[in-house]
Design a protein around this nucleic acid. Structure first.
Length: 362
DNA sequence: GGCAATGTCACTCGGTTCCA
DNA sequence: TGGAACCGAGTGACATTGCC
């Protein structure tokens, strides 16, 4: 039996000798299916937020009460995964392991509450402060300790703080997070921007925090090369993926609809013997965005991650059932058993007939 | 000059990615 | 799926800058 990655992916686009639904038709068709009442609204939005205990796409650690995310295609978070491996070697059963495992709190916030000072900004640290107020507190703490040799009182400091204005959505194309600074980047992308040595040299005006408080004006941003900064925002990927969130932002309409449909189909009928971890789904989306494809059928598989190719195979299968009518499949030389309401055990829904001679097919 | 805020670097450990 | 390497979040420290 061939490995999944070696399987020939049947084409969605034929050589033109067989009539199939055109690209325009395909978008109309998928849009109609996605807006239909029986389509799960969870998959309609461009930023899909999956509950951690979703039956197909669940992403929470299997240890009861553990708030961390499971590793892709794993049952547990990294810490519990290592503990389970050790427990297995020690001869422990899975039930004993579950009883003994201590639930953990994630180090990075998965679904942060609002900052206690800024109602529009997500909290960033354990004190429930946004990125800017969290940084301010840490520096204030260090300053007071360094100068006076004593620890500052948090409540006194908090009482003096004023909320910062809303900075809008992060400017990085696929990022759905709220911006954490006047630069227009979320705190993770601020770190990425600094790591990439600040392409375009974008920086808020000096002492911008005072500028906001005292002059109540928008903060001017200075650029060494604005177009370079904007290009960095377009080409940079997501910063954090294991949070049950899938971002389709920045994709072209047809491929976006195709992925929504495939996710819905797989959620309803997770056959094909495959799991689709959300992290891998996001990889495929990132590859589609990087290659600027109109459709999943246009992807250059040679330039995809291996895990993207695994999912691509499954997604193309579910789309083929929509794109090809019974007559189309006959002409193209394959059968979609789902067209007839039949699924053979341990088989995919398509059966390639091209190796069979024309005489036998008749 | 004192104080508050900013810029940047370093360290630890949990999270992410990829290979076999 | 196991394992390892790498990355990044969170935190702290220190020097510098700017306002009053």
């Amino acid at each position: 039996m061939k490995a999944m990655s070696d399987l020939q992916v049947l084409p969605l686009v034929t050589d033109g000798s067989v009539s199939t639904r055109t690209a325009g038709d395909r978008l109309e068709l998928l849009t109609a299916l996605i807006t239909a009442p029986n389509f799960d609204p969870l998959f309609r939005t461009d930023v899909i937020k999956v509950p951690r205990d979703h039956p197909t796409y669940g992403w929470g650690c299997a240890v009861s009460g553990c708030q961390r995310a499971q590793g892709p295609a794993r049952d547990f978070c990294k810490v519990h995964e290592l503990e389970w491996v050790a427990a297995q070697k020690a001869g422990q059963s899975i039930t004993e392991f579950h009883m003994a495992a201590v639930p953990l709190i994630p180090k990075s916030r998965i679904d942060p509450p609002p900052c206690v000072v800024c109602p529009d900004a997500p909290a960033w640290d354990a004190r429930q402060l946004c990125y800017l107020h969290g940084s301010r507190w840490l520096r204030h703490h260090a300053d007071v300790r360094g100068r006076k040799g004593m620890l500052p009182v948090y409540e006194e400091w908090l009482a003096k703080q004023v909320p910062f204005p809303h900075f809008g959505q992060c400017k990085v194309l696929p990022c759905p997070e709220q911006a954490s600074s006047p630069l227009g980047l979320c705190h993770r992308h601020i770190t990425h921007y600094e790591r990439d040595r600040k392409p375009g040299g974008a920086r808020p005006a000096a002492n911008w925090a005072r500028w906001i408080v005292t002059r109540n004006k928008p903060v001017p941003i200075e650029y060494a090369d604005r177009s370079l900064f904007e290009r960095w925002c377009r080409e940079t990927g997501l910063a954090n993926r294991a949070n049950g969130q899938v971002s389709l932002l920045g994709l072209r309409p047809l491929v976006k609809a195709e992925i929504k449909w495939a996710l819905f189909q797989h959620g309803n009928n997770p056959t094909e013997g495959m799991i689709w971890p959300l992290v891998w789904v996001q990889y495929l989306i990132d590859d589609c965005r990087d290659q600027r494809v109109d459709s999943l059928a246009d992807i250059d598989q040679g330039n995809c991650r291996r895990l993207s190719r695994l999912l691509l195979f499954g997604m193309l299968n579910s789309l083929r059932q929509v794109y090809f009518t019974r007559d189309d499949t006959k002409e193209a030389g394959f059968i979609e058993t789902d067209h007839f309401g039949v699924r053979f055990a341990s088989c995919h829904s398509h059966i390639d007939l091209t190796p069979i001679s024309e005489l036998l097919q008749r």
